[in-house]
């Protein structure tokens, strides 16, 4: 059953130099209990997509299209109705746990806040539930009293508290925006394990935003690759990795130092993608990646390539996709 369905989502930001298209025709589906990875580099629109779903876009932004969640279009809902969904059915884990937590409130009170607000629990009951949630995410009493403040915890522990807050009201969709980027590699692995576990336990759908291809490979069933505000490739995670049909996906894969399982021989270099992501105000009329693409041809320049299906559940927006398998 489709839980979240995004169709033709366009987000435009008003800037002094004119309207800047941030997202263009973004669309995807996420089934209840499913997991979807969103990859791409900074500025490609991953976080804006998440904020659009949460109804947290900046005020200068205008969104068109449809974001259908549990049968209702979130873009058409008034703020009051969104407030009742946010933190209740839709929850989000942000990148930086220190700024996501209130420094002057105890962790117990912050986890209990959603329970009191959304579920109308009394103070005692909410706090008892908060203790259980903190216990579940690995911040248990008595070592971590709910009376602790965020500054008394490490980065990984804070991220666990943020996850407890997100889980508190039993949401259907959890959006995790670079949840482990600010953490050490060992805490990163533990947090990803925790997210996978709690998602499976509660039947949550997980929208995982990351720049790290390996994290997507290990944690999601389907994925989309975004570039300059557009979806350039989508499909089952393993199918996309096996093919890497879009030259951008392949470039990203080749440039990841972790993709190589050996030391570079002397004199050899990493496969960098030349150039930069185009500025939203000066995006080309044709394929947005053409300026950096090794396979670009004359037919890439006049118009945006339409998405085409390569295999069931695997599509790419490119006129000259790679059809051979990804080199090992």
């Amino acid at each position: 059953m489709t839980l979240l369905s995004v169709r033709d989502l366009c987000v435009t930001l008003e800037t002094p130099e004119g309207p800047a298209p941030i997202l263009e025709d973004v669309g995807f589906d996420l089934a209840a209990g499913g997991s979807l990875g969103l990859v791409g580099e900074s500025g490609c629109g991953k976080s804006m997509t998440a904020l659009a779903v949460m109804g947290l876009l900046p005020e200068r932004a205008v969104a068109t299209g449809e974001i259908v969640f549990e049968g209702c279009n979130l873009l058409a809902l008034p703020e009051g109705a969104l407030c009742k969904l946010r933190g209740r059915r839709l929850a989000m884990v942000f990148q930086e746990p220190m700024t996501a937590l209130n420094p002057v409130k105890t962790i117990g009170a912050q986890v209990a806040e959603g329970l009191r607000w959304h579920l109308g629990l009394g103070r005692g009951e909410a706090e008892a539930r908060a203790v259980k949630l903190l216990d579940r995410v690995g911040v248990p009493r008595p070592r971590f009293a709910p009376g602790l403040y965020p500054h008394q915890l490490s980065g990984g522990q804070r991220q666990r508290v943020v996850i407890a807050m997100a889980l508190a009201c039993d949401p259907a969709l959890l959006i995790a925006d670079e949840p482990t980027t600010a953490l050490d590699v060992t805490s990163q692995a533990a947090i990803l394990d925790l997210l996978a576990e709690v998602a499976a336990e509660a039947g949550l759908a997980l929208l995982l935003i990351t720049h790290d291809l390996a994290v997507v490979w290990q944690n999601t069933r389907s994925m989309i690759v975004m570039y300059a505000g557009r979806v350039v490739e989508r499909g089952g995670t393993h199918e996309v990795f096996a093919r890497m049909a879009h030259p951008y996906s392949r470039g990203l894969f080749a440039a990841s130092p972790g993709a190589l399982d050996a030391v570079l021989p002397p004199g050899r270099r990493l496969a960098a993608i030349p150039g930069l992501v185009p500025d939203p105000l000066h995006r080309p009329a044709g394929c947005v990646f053409a300026g950096r693409c090794p396979r670009a041809a004359a037919d890439c320049l006049p118009a945006q390539p339409a998405e085409r299906r390569l295999a069931p559940g695997h599509a790419v927006a490119c006129l000259h996709p790679h059809l051979e398998a990804t080199p090992a």
């Binding site: 692995a189 490979w217 990795f241 990841s256």
Partner: peptide, 20 residues
């Protein structure tokens, strides 16, 4: 070993992490 094992890798299924 714990540090290396914690690095996510493409093509390698995730293993449960044991604390260092």
């Amino acid at each position: 070993r714990a540090l290396l094992a914690a690095v996510p890798r493409i093509g390698v299924p995730r293993r449960r992490v044991t604390a260092a």
